[in-house]
Design a protein around this nucleic acid. Sequence first.
RNA 1: GGCCCCAUCGUCUAGUGGCCUAGGACACCACCCUCUCAAGGUGGCGGCACGGGUUCGAAUCCCGUUGGGGCUGCCA
Length: 469
Amino acid sequence: MTTAPRFRFAPSPTGFFHVGGARTALYNWALAQHLGGTFVLRIEDTDESRNSPEWTQGIIDALGWLGINSDSPQFEGPYFQSHNADKHIAAAHRLFEQGNAYWCDLTSEQIQERAKASGKQGYDGHSRDRGLSAGPGHVLRFRVPQGTTIVHDLVRGEVEFANDTIEDFVLLRSNGSPMFLLANVIDDIDMTVTHVVRAEEHLPNTPKQQMVWDALGVAPPIWAHVPVLVNEQRKKLSKRRDKVALEQYKSDGILADAMVNYLMTLGWAPHGDTEIVPWTTMVEQFRLEDVNHSPAFFDVKKLEAFNGDYIRALSLSDFIDACQPWLTASDVAWSPAQFDADVFESIASLIQTRVAVLSEVASMVDFFFLPDAPTDDASWTKAMTPEWAHDVLNECAREYATCDWNHDSLKLVLETIGTNRDLKLGKVQAPLRVAITGRTVGPPLFESIEFLGRQRTLSRIGVALQRLG
RNA sequence: GGCCCCAUCGUCUAGUGGCCUAGGACACCACCCUCUCAAGGUGGCGGCACGGGUUCGAAUCCCGUUGGGGCUGCCA
């Protein structure tokens, strides 16, 4: 008989949500969905010095954004490791009573000195047989048995560790609080976790944890260590150097689906020649055995390419909805009163193919809502330098005062002005574009002018003419 | 230093002994389309780290070398 598998995701609440953690969570979630199991969220807050309660809500929100919904019947938690301290301590004492652990009174300084003197690194097992009991300044250490420990890992195969290379690690701190290694195991046992899927950086901890499982008489879980995510220097993504906050990508305008899809392909690929596939397909196909063994570079460019794809796949109304946060943000160039939702809806389809991240939208449509064209000196210089610029704008102003107001005729007018001077539309449009939009690049000009209206168009041409002198 | 992991285009990957003169995607380049910029289309550039084996046959298996990475805390 097989019971439904139970996966767990066990982040520590140390600020924002790390993209590496996001991928690990996604792998666990995909597996839970694929196998009809449970995803258990456990907040590992044993290190009191660096946890903060508001961050756990951040974790839940971030998971929710990724589609790992805490309302789902397959979602369990959050549990807090700190709430289980009693169980951890009880287990530690049981380990002591069984002879699997012993007390030690050495300080870190003393350990270092001994290591220096012996020339060997780490703790040397000095207190193993000293028969110490609990007391102030005493830590409880696990008595690593002789022999070898074999970790059966679903992505790596069998990994063998000689136990004599593993030091007697600390279970309980001198203040009596449990260490991660212990707490982690006790919680996994307590929550009947069957699969531990986590990042590769935990692989060296695994034999230690497995020994604790064994000592407690419980069969260890199925392990799976997925490769870490690295930066361009091939170093593990770090909070200090790298942009790793999921929230940051969200506020830059990365779509959740794009992020999910991209993260899943870091270390794994869906079948076939397309890597942009719906979540349900990934759930169906994802297998731990197919996960790559080597670190994967978190490539923001590729993420944005995925995102552009997802943006273009949105229906127009979904796209418009998705843009709202960036149109109403506090740092936007226009005032709320100046914003015209109808205008935005009218031009949205022209914007949709032109952005890779949603935060780009604002600077692409600002000229519609600002009283005057935005100023961009580089664009101005580039477009207004030709000696014909002034005359073209002048003629434009005259013709646009009376011509039919639709993009076809607006275009035809400028085309004619250009033809008379032997200038292609691609060239003559430049001064007009900058006069109207402020920039040399942007959405299609004549549609934009049409939406802007005759009055404002004429006024902007006037302003530009004046500036040209 | 010690322990462990890893090694296919610049990057993410497909590939599990013959279908591989190694496929796709991102990036890059060119062309087409085109009012700018995108999007889209077409094409191109570019890789099995190296050396030994095993085998009729190796990107795929074994060994070694080299190169990367992770861990090495009374952090998680």
